[in-house]
Design a protein around this nucleic acid. Structure first.
Lengths: 351, 351
DNA sequence: GATTGGCACTCAGTGTAAGGGAGTGCTAAT
DNA sequence: ATTAGCACTCCCTTACACTGAGTGCCAATC
């Protein structure tokens, strides 16, 4: 059939682009008339209708009802962001605010919060930033305190000043001084190493000859193992500006909004989604149902991993309605990720 | 005028009560006809209309428009909860779930979270619980770590296993061993005391003769002072089930809901409100605008302080639409507060 | 004097009909 | 291949009438 032959020529792509841009800015279904005047091409509405019929057949656009204009489908958005979109340079004011906010030398937790807030404020959508992975964090100090019932409270400090704590269950009862000794021992050998390195070293230690260690050392190693045994230190993220999402008419359905907020507070879906984009470097985009989670059906996520010392340690992004200004959001997220990475770099961030 | 003479006789109160109950259960403005059949009094609609006219003049009820039924005003609700309401005994199932959830012996942080979640789940509204005041918390362990630039990271553990940390700025540079010594000294004298007691003792120490102390002791005391100097450890609360509020039609106004959620995430208004009810013992109720915060205009708060060892240490409550089932919520909050207090009692909660 | 029945009135909500507007699909002409 | 024209569809708004619920007031009744 002849439609196949003209499926996606230059012109139809150009029209799709204009249509998406127009829909993003107006929020109204776009008709052939507007498109005719809007696009640089000099085509009559009738011609455009023919093209639109093709685009619709390809599943790129869709008509809410018989006599409304066309609206991009998820595939349409996808094609748009993948090949049609022309990114706009960042607004200077926004860039300035990013610089200002992300140049302070605070601890990682604070910076994460600042970044999240900045994303939310500047995009008027919801900002989300994951905490840095533990590979990055290096052990600075560790300490054990006895609790009742063979339980021990572990406190460990990472990087400059981040304090973590965890309760572990030991197989015998330890006294305060024994625990103190164990802490001192571990501090002396593992201080300054990354948590993953510590975990690896501890495991190796336990598997090799334990004869050359005395009981106290062995106890210490065992406790370290319990402390760092798994990544169960559940990943977490900082969210800001959720309330911004309540303003969007496309999310006005009470039910959708509720599901979305529930997903935010249960966290796991969001975390899983962010994890995915951790694997790839650079900006990633999930449009509508692409995410695979019902809660995000009418939302898009634009994310980017951020790196410290050329190693990916976390993800940040923005959550908003499918109809968002991708051409502005994409560079924005890109820059924010780079700035956050730089701000977290211990070389430059230690005063 | 004659209306004055029969302002608030038994009968009109009875009618107001029935009206409020009916409105709470239905959510529809209540007309004279329903009220006539609903109330035990055997009165014709016409008579009831007369009474309602009086109640309206007194500002207790109000008509949304000429020919709708009547709806309670804030004053109407107030009168209702203050003198008309007959509290219903707690549902056995709910009571059972409360017992179950609040009998576990976890650390305070967890219990607070559980309580908040329980309130939200059982009332289908939003639950809120403040963290216990620091008067209650007693120092278990304190420790200092050197940071750069005359900054010191203080880590202190309170009660069983709650870890806090703070960065203080000292007026000279301390080495790791000096700091360790200081920590050991403070542990030896202040361990087991409440934070407020520690603060008081430290202040007293600094004001009296410092001759009998050596420099190391003095440094330790000074650092303790910096650590505990103010209540700036900002009070905080745990919120659960905010999303439940999105289901209520009376809060459907996008704007109201947004303001409410913003108040939740900014926290200060909520904290201030909860603080107020900390002062009074027992259940307190804020209806609609009474709270004084615009964000809560169409909401009611039912709160109760909770106590450990007969001392008020925190507040819990439920946030929902003005039209809520007070007669069930009030005893519910009352019981929950008592159970939480019991669960937090260190005597019984330490295994 | 309190209570009640009756009546006119008000007002939200609903259903129906008509007209306008925006947009489409198809066909025939260019 | 493109375009103009036309008939058609569907949404939206306005208008109008009608219903039902509820009120306020007045006069009759207990």
């Amino acid at each position: 059939m002849r439609k196949g032959t003209r499926n996606l020529n230059e012109r139809s792509l150009q029209l799709l682009k204009t249509l998406v841009e127009r829909y993003i800015s107006d929020g109204q279904p776009v008709g052939s008339r507007v498109l005719s005047t809007d696009s640089a091409l000099n085509l009559s509405p009738a011609t455009i209708r023919n093209v639109m019929a093709d685009l619709e057949e390809l599943g790129l656009i869709h008509s809410p009802h018989t006599s409304a204009g066309r609206v991009p489908t998820v595939s349409g958005y996808r094609l748009f962001v993948d090949s049609l979109l022309t990114v706009k340079p960042l607004d200077t004011k926004e860039l300035a605010r990013l610089y200002e906010g992300l140049s302070e030398n605070e601890d990682a937790g604070t910076m994460i919060g600042v970044a999240s807030r900045l994303i939310a404020d500047l995009t008027k959508m919801a900002g989300v930033v994951t905490l840095p992975r533990r590979e990055l964090v290096c052990l600075r100090h560790i300490e054990f305190l006895p609790l009742s019932h063979k339980r021990v409270l572990v406190i460990f400090v990472t990087n400059e000043q981040e304090v973590h704590n965890k309760v572990i269950h030991t197989d015998k009862v330890f006294g305060a001084s024994e625990l103190q000794q164990a802490g001192a021992y571990l501090n002396s050998i593992y201080c300054g190493h990354s948590l993953t390195a510590v975990r690896a070293a501890v495991l190796k230690e336990l598997q090799t000859d334990q004869e050359r260690m005395n009981q106290a050392m062995l106890d210490a190693i065992k406790m370290a193992q319990l402390t760092f045994e798994s990544d169960n230190e559940k990943d977490d993220y900082v969210l800001a500006g959720e309330t911004n999402l309540m303003g969007f008419s496309e999310l006005s359905d009470r039910n959708h909004l509720k599901k979305l907020f529930e997903a935010f507070s249960q966290k796991q879906d969001v975390i899983h989604l962010l994890d995915q984009s951790m694997k790839a470097e650079g900006v990633q985009i999930f449009i509508g149902e692409e995410s695979g989670y019902q809660a995000f059906d009418h939302c898009s996520l634009v994310t980017s991993s951020y790196s410290v010392n050329d190693e990916v340690v976390g993800v940040l992004g923005v959550i908003g309605p499918t109809r968002m200004a991708y051409e502005k959001i994409i560079p924005f997220i890109d820059v924010t990720a780079k700035l956050l990475g730089a701000a977290l770099n211990p070389k430059t961030s230690t005063p």
